[in-house]
């Protein structure tokens, strides 16, 4: 099954509503994650239209899951989690504090919780985790180990979009604009797909999204889908980026359904993502930024 992960980027309200309306009507995904994961300052805005967007998605036949903040810092944030539980949503924890609150009830665990091995997985399963999306460093083989160790837990692999590489209390987006987080003017909204960061020698390094750093390229694991499936992975997550996500979802759906071959699907994915490079190293136990795929990007974009 395809899942649409939480929107990590700061898009304005109108764009968000339009985006999810189209997802609700057109995207072949079974499950959509909502909720602010990155920044507590964005949360009031994200939360405001969340009920309406959730309703729209449910009307379109999608399951809605609420993803929580990566760094829980206030009581208000935990209260918001409680409210979502009462409203009947499945909640995905992205921080251990949230796991503590969810324990004893069925819940999901997101990629920002350190589930690195079957010992941790087993413990979380005993506490009620029914779905787990491990961090990027757990590659294809590791996901297979997880699926075999806990057949009762659905293991989810992130197969498209930028990977979160770090979280922090400090806002790098604000710093890049010479601002402080307390008075950030929401400059993170100016870049719909994150702020590119290069080295002094002009090599692409990461993308900054508020307090998080993310991979400079998108995960694009079309070619890995068969191996992931053989390993027992049951859910495939697409992260919303500034590209036509309906098209991306259809493309992955067709690849999963065997309606397009890997090469054809890869070529279509390449065409749908403009000049953004792809990365795949983590899936194969190599440096995360590596890409040895067959889309033949010009060298300058592979740096």
């Amino acid at each position: 099954m395809l899942t649409l992960g939480p929107l990590m980027l700061n898009w304005e309200a109108a764009r968000r509503r339009d985006f999810y309306a189209r997802i609700a009507d057109e995207a072949p995904v079974g499950c959509v994650h909502l909720g602010e994961v990155v920044c507590s300052k964005r949360a009031p805005f994200t939360d405001r239209d969340l009920p309406a967007i959730a309703e729209r998605l449910r009307a379109g036949g999608k399951e809605v899951v609420i993803s929580t903040m990566a760094l829980v810092t206030s009581k208000a944030e935990m209260r918001a989690v409680e409210e979502m539980l009462e409203a009947g949503f499945l909640v995905e924890a992205n921080d251990v504090s949230c796991v503590h609150v969810l324990a004893g009830r069925p819940h999901a665990i997101g990629p920002l919780v350190n589930v690195f091995n079957e010992g941790t997985l087993a413990y979380l399963a005993r506490m009620g985790a029914i779905r787990v999306a491990p961090p990027p460093e757990v590659g294809i083989d590791g996901l297979g180990v997880f699926a075999r160790a806990e057949p009762g837990v659905e293991i989810e692999a992130t197969v498209f979009g930028r990977l979160t590489l770090s979280v922090a209390a400090r806002c790098y987006h604000a710093r890049a604009y010479g601002l402080h987080r307390d008075n950030c003017q929401f400059v993170c909204a100016r870049e719909a797909d994150g702020m590119p960061v290069e080295t002094l020698d002009g090599e692409a390094f990461v993308v900054v999204n508020g307090t998080q750093t993310m991979s400079h390229g998108y995960a694009a694991a079309i070619a890995d889908l068969p191996r992931l499936r053989e390993g027992g992975v049951r859910r495939f997550r697409l992260m919303p980026q500034d590209v036509d996500m309906v098209r991306i979802a259809r493309l992955f759906d067709d690849a999963l359904g065997g309606r397009t071959g890997t090469d054809e699907a890869m070529a279509q994915l390449r065409a749908a993502c403009g000049e953004v490079p792809f990365v795949e190293g983590y899936a194969h136990g190599r440096p995360g930024r590596e890409w040895r795929g067959q889309d033949r990007l010009p060298d300058r974009l592979l740096h």
């Binding site: 350190n114 990027p136 460093e137 590489l165 770090s166 979280v167 922090a168 209390a169 990461v206 995360g288």
Partner: peptide
């Protein structure tokens, strides 16, 4: 970065 939650080095 928040300790234990930064994978820039392995990236």
């Amino acid at each position: 970065m928040t300790e234990g939650r930064c994978i820039l080095s392995s990236y």
